[in-house]
Simulated assay, not measured.
Amino acid sequence: MIDSMINYFTKIPYLMRHAYHRQKSQWIWLVAPFIVSLIALFITMLIFKMNGTEEIKQAQGYFKLTAGTSFFYIWIAIYRSYKTFKSEYFTGKLFNLNPIVQNMVIAIVMCLTMLISLICIIIATPVNIESSIYSTLFFGIMSMLFVVVVSTLLGLCSILSQKVDIIYYVISCIMFFIVPILFIPNSNTTLLSHVLMLNPLYYLIEGFAQSVVLGVLSLNNIPYHLYYLLFLALLCVWIYALYRIVAHKKYVYTIASRNVKGKSNHSAQDENTTKEN
């Protein structure tokens, strides 16, 4: 255990350089959502200006814009991370390196870019809207944890199954409609809101949107924060178990490959002996 920790920390400079070059080669995944978010913000401001929209409706519009922006940033971060995890798992094991470092770097870079986009939205909101940069930063940290944990879980599942991509697309489509982007809960949908809040992604999307439109009000629900952290802890337990399952399957596959290779070598030797006789 201690040797593994020492090896991990001594390899950090190499891991950071490797992560930097990988991010540099995939810069389009970072630039594209940022440009799209700025274009969406500009179009929203232009529509509000041309129509003379009242501030209450502007608040609803910025709420949906913030929710949609944060959703797609998180979606892209998880997708990139678990796809990278699968390739890094096999190459990293050869050098006794943990592939989760790539997930952490992707999560940090994507979330920092998302925060810049959200701060641009905060600056664009009307004066009467009480935005909070501190609560936005808080949910940015929570989203980084979410991206790292979920992408690691999906990365391990993608090693065991080839259907993870399809499952991810389907779940993402469902999530888009049950988080507060198109549908914003009100006082008449309290029960439905509590049911939807069991979804941790709902916690993040609503937290970002409320931070931009309602300010620090998004930080008042302490039990919900604890529930979210407990949910991530449960996912970490699943990750711990999946690591053992993947390692076991890899061991079984290696042994089987060696046995097949050994049998083929023995067969070749027998054929050569037969020919000599």
Score class of each variant (00 low, 15 high):
residue 29 W to R: 04
residue 29 W to T: 06
residue 30 L to I: 03
residue 30 L to K: 00
residue 31 V to F: 07
residue 32 A to Y: 04
residue 34 F to Q: 04
residue 34 F to G: 06
residue 35 I to D: 05
residue 35 I to T: 13
residue 35 I to F: 12
residue 36 V to T: 11
residue 37 S to K: 02
residue 37 S to Y: 01
residue 37 S to T: 09
residue 37 S to R: 01
residue 37 S to G: 08
residue 38 L to S: 05
residue 39 I to N: 06
residue 40 A to M: 14
residue 41 L to W: 07
residue 42 F to H: 04
residue 42 F to A: 14
residue 43 I to Y: 13
residue 43 I to M: 11
residue 43 I to C: 12
residue 45 M to R: 13
residue 45 M to L: 06
residue 46 L to R: 10
residue 48 F to K: 02
residue 51 N to R: 12
residue 51 N to G: 03
residue 54 E to K: 07
residue 55 E to M: 12
residue 57 K to S: 15
residue 57 K to I: 15
residue 58 Q to L: 14
residue 58 Q to G: 07
residue 58 Q to I: 11
residue 59 A to M: 08
residue 59 A to Q: 11
residue 61 G to T: 07
residue 61 G to S: 12
residue 62 Y to C: 12
residue 63 F to W: 14
residue 63 F to G: 06
residue 64 K to Y: 06
residue 64 K to D: 11
residue 65 L to A: 07
residue 65 L to I: 09
residue 66 T to Y: 07
residue 66 T to R: 08
residue 67 A to P: 01
residue 67 A to M: 04
residue 67 A to S: 12
residue 67 A to L: 07
residue 69 T to C: 01
residue 71 F to M: 15
residue 72 F to M: 14
residue 73 Y to E: 04
residue 76 I to S: 12
residue 76 I to Q: 04
residue 77 A to M: 01
residue 78 I to G: 01
residue 79 Y to D: 08
residue 82 Y to A: 05
residue 83 K to I: 10
residue 83 K to D: 11
residue 86 K to L: 08
residue 87 S to T: 14
residue 88 E to L: 13
residue 91 T to C: 08
residue 92 G to T: 14
residue 94 L to E: 14
residue 95 F to T: 13
residue 97 L to G: 03
residue 97 L to T: 15
residue 98 N to M: 05
residue 99 P to Q: 08
residue 99 P to G: 13
residue 101 V to E: 01
residue 104 M to H: 04
residue 106 I to Y: 02
residue 107 A to T: 00
residue 108 I to S: 03
residue 108 I to V: 15
residue 109 V to I: 15
residue 109 V to T: 13
residue 110 M to T: 00
residue 113 T to K: 00
residue 115 L to Q: 11
residue 116 I to R: 01
residue 116 I to E: 01
residue 117 S to H: 05
residue 118 L to A: 06
residue 118 L to I: 15
residue 119 I to N: 10
residue 119 I to P: 02
residue 120 C to M: 13
residue 122 I to F: 03
residue 124 A to M: 07
residue 124 A to D: 07
residue 126 P to W: 05
residue 127 V to C: 06
residue 128 N to S: 15
residue 129 I to N: 03
residue 130 E to R: 06
residue 130 E to M: 03
residue 131 S to P: 03
residue 132 S to C: 15
residue 133 I to D: 06
residue 134 Y to L: 15
residue 134 Y to H: 05
residue 134 Y to R: 07
residue 134 Y to I: 14
residue 136 T to I: 11
residue 137 L to E: 03
residue 138 F to L: 12
residue 140 G to R: 02
residue 142 M to W: 09
residue 143 S to M: 03
residue 146 F to P: 00
residue 147 V to P: 02
residue 147 V to R: 00
residue 147 V to Q: 00
residue 149 V to P: 02
residue 150 V to P: 05
residue 150 V to A: 11
residue 152 T to W: 04
